[in-house]
Simulated assay, not measured.
Amino acid sequence: MSAPATDTAAATNPLKKPELDYPCGDAPEPGRASEIVPGVLWMRMPMPLGLNHINLWAIRDGAGWAAVDSGLQTPETAQAWRTLFGDGGALADGLTRLFVTHMHPDHIGMAGWLRRKFGCQLWMTRMEYLMCRVLAADTGRAAPDDAIEFYRRAGWDDDAIEVYRTRFGGFGKFVHALPESFRRLEDGATIRIGDHDWTVVVGTGHSPEHACLYCPSLKLLVSGDQVLPRISSNVSVFPTEPDADPMEDWLASLDKVKAAVPDDVLVLPAHNEPFRGLHARIDYLRASQLQALDRLRDALAQPKRAVDVFGELFSRPITGSGGLLGMATGESIAHLNYLLHRAEAVRELAADGCYWYRLS
């Protein structure tokens, strides 16, 4: 593998996008695996979404393999797993354990299927497991009044609300029935997987209790969605906790990962390609987020709703009334709540039923 790229300008200017090193070549096709280092495999599963893939990992664990993350519950993912487990497949020895970084469907979707196929124990943090159970239980329910109020106050129109009502409860569509038990991952714990020790580094903001796995002896970090090389993690507020401040959690987690994990690791992210340059990427993500908050402060010189600040926060237009609108709204409110929690902004509920935000 090649040495990490250096970029002196990026080191002094965190807003200059760092030139990361991608030493692992092209991603494997679904159903195949590439060896990252001896005993660690890279797999990729397809997704029928705008972000069309997720990376999964397998670590040699005695006579079998410990997998990290599982992919969406789809026929295509199931077929890719069957190929990996089949005669001559990279995982023909079977699974010993399944580690899940967090509860989003692309990470946990096939966990129950794999548990039932191999009898392997599910390892994840407590909050992620419990939150997944709660969200999966929404399948088949009508959208709650609190959620409708949340999005109306953000500025959604009747068409967008109707689409939300229709799609509510879709979380469980891509998640196989969860195992009824799990093994808890805890921040700072050391876990022996095969011949190596891995340390759990928990981050928050993107999800409630996201577990990264760091192996000092192999100089590897499985970062999940906590640090990604080409895209930013979604950091959103949801109707279940409308006054949350996940942006503060995420920024603090970036600092925590930087302090806990050396810069010389090869990062194994959930999306895009394995890379080197962890600290430069963290610095860029933090600086970009702070710059977005500055743009938001400028915009709030005049009162705005959550849907009115998309242009200040995102690099592409947000149109329509589907999932992208929901993600953009959640992120906008996360930025606005960050300012509210610091008394830099205030919000007022107007006669139109919307929250209007302005600088304090």
Rank of each mutant, 00 (worst) to 15 (best):
V265A: 04
G89P: 06
A78H: 08
P23Q: 13
A334I: 04
Y164T: 04
E209T: 12
D26H: 05
A137N: 03
V40K: 01
G89H: 07
S321D: 01
D263A: 13
V261M: 10
D197G: 15
D26R: 10
S233D: 09
V267F: 08
P23N: 14
C24I: 14
Q79E: 14
G320W: 02
A299T: 08
Q289W: 09
W356L: 07
L324E: 11
H102Y: 15
K256R: 15
L300Q: 03
H206Y: 12
A9S: 06
A351H: 06
G50T: 11
S253P: 11
V307I: 15
D93E: 15
L41C: 03
P179A: 00
R167T: 02
W42D: 08
L130Q: 08
V68R: 01
I108E: 12
L213A: 01
Q291D: 14
A90Y: 04
P18Q: 03
P30T: 00
G25A: 11
Y164P: 06
F168G: 09
Y151F: 15
S288I: 11
L349C: 09
W156H: 10
T96I: 02
E76Y: 03
D225V: 02
A345E: 06
S233V: 10
G277T: 06
R184L: 02
P208H: 13
A143Y: 04
D294T: 12
N13D: 15
S232C: 10
H279Q: 06
L325D: 02
K16T: 09
L254H: 10
L339C: 11
R115E: 09
I108S: 12
S253Y: 12
H53W: 08
Y355A: 09
W42C: 04
G112R: 08
P48E: 12
H341L: 00
L296Y: 05
L340F: 03
T190K: 11
D243C: 07
Y357E: 08
L290T: 05
R230N: 13
Q73T: 07
A306C: 03
H341Y: 04
H176T: 09
E76S: 13
D26F: 07
P229I: 04
L41Q: 09
A78E: 14
R141D: 12
W356H: 15
G140F: 00
H279M: 02
H196V: 11
E19D: 11
R82N: 10
P28E: 06
D298T: 10
T240Y: 03
L41S: 06
Y284A: 08
A147I: 01
A280Q: 13
A301E: 13
S223R: 12
E312Q: 15
P239T: 00
P28A: 05
A11S: 07
D298G: 04
T96S: 06
P216G: 03
D146T: 11
V227D: 10
P274V: 14
L296A: 03
F85L: 10
T12A: 14
L340E: 02
R342G: 02
S321Q: 01
K304M: 08
A244E: 07
L340C: 04
K256W: 04
T6W: 06
L84M: 09
V227Y: 10
L339I: 13
V309H: 05
T166R: 08
P303R: 08
E180D: 09
E241K: 11
S181K: 00
W65H: 01
N337R: 04
I333E: 01
Y214W: 14
M47C: 12
M45L: 15
K17V: 09
